[in-house]
Amino acid sequence: MPVYDQGYRPYEGALRTRFLRWWPITRRCLFTVRKKPLAAVLIAGGILLLYEVILVYATGVTERGFSRIVNPWGYGDGIFYDLLTRETYFVVLLLMVSGAGQIAEDVRTGALQIYFSKPITHADYVLGKLGAVVLSGCLLTLLPGALLFLACAAFSPDWSFLTGNPWLPLRILAFSLLISIVLGSLVLAVSSLGRKGRVAAIVFGGAYFFSMVLGEVLPRILADSRYEIVHLGRCLGAAGSTIFTQGDFPAGSPALAWGILASLSLVSVLLLARKVKAVEVVR
């Protein structure tokens, strides 16, 4: 009897329809980040920045008496806003190291073929990658922010810090996610354009630092300080200022910043949707 007449073997597995189908991809990507020594150095550097910020604030208050040293937190959430905006540079560097190759390397090695032969959708794949870069970004934003919050709570002589800042954890979370999602989706979009992680890293880092230069030069040439939000870091800062009610931006800048960041993220996502294919174009 021909073997093919025996019919299909019944499917016996206890498979689950996973709600978080993208999570194994995120885990796998975080595993590769963990293996990069430079990423570890950057994360350590970003966390060390936390102590610098504390030191600056503590030093700043010594002149006002000992009681202010043990309670430098009278500054409110400004210290958190400062910390997170300064961490943005570390996030950019970390994403250059750990995020730029996420899709490019999968395209180059053919891993996309394997991924898309499994029961996941393209959206699951992109979400998995985005999850990895956002969590990487949060290591340098949410983690230091949370540590600073805990330090403030621990060193506060009474409950006033906690009672006076009930929304602070959510603000830290929101700003951390904003930074991580915007920069994360951008680095993935750049990564999806090519087949080499290093090239994607250079393009992503170059674009960020070029925007920084433009943000310095344009306001002076055009004599209008509103142009400083072409600097992606300042743009994030302006948007974050509405979360923390901090910062010193010209009128209208925060709203414009939100518009720019939303557009940038949307373009990145659309680019990802278009480019993430396991296709090799043969010429």
Binding site: Y11, L15, R21, T32, K35, D106, R108, T109, G110, A111, Q113, I114, S117, K118, P119, I120, T121, H122
Partner: peptide, 22 residues
């Protein structure tokens, strides 16, 4: 195409093999 339900019933071995080398 883009059918996870079918992919559960399918095993695919591509030609390339340079992926996941770590």
């Amino acid at each position: 195409f883009a059918n996870p339900r079918l992919h559960r019933r399918m095993g695919y071995c591509p030609e390339g093999d340079r992926f996941f080398d770590d």
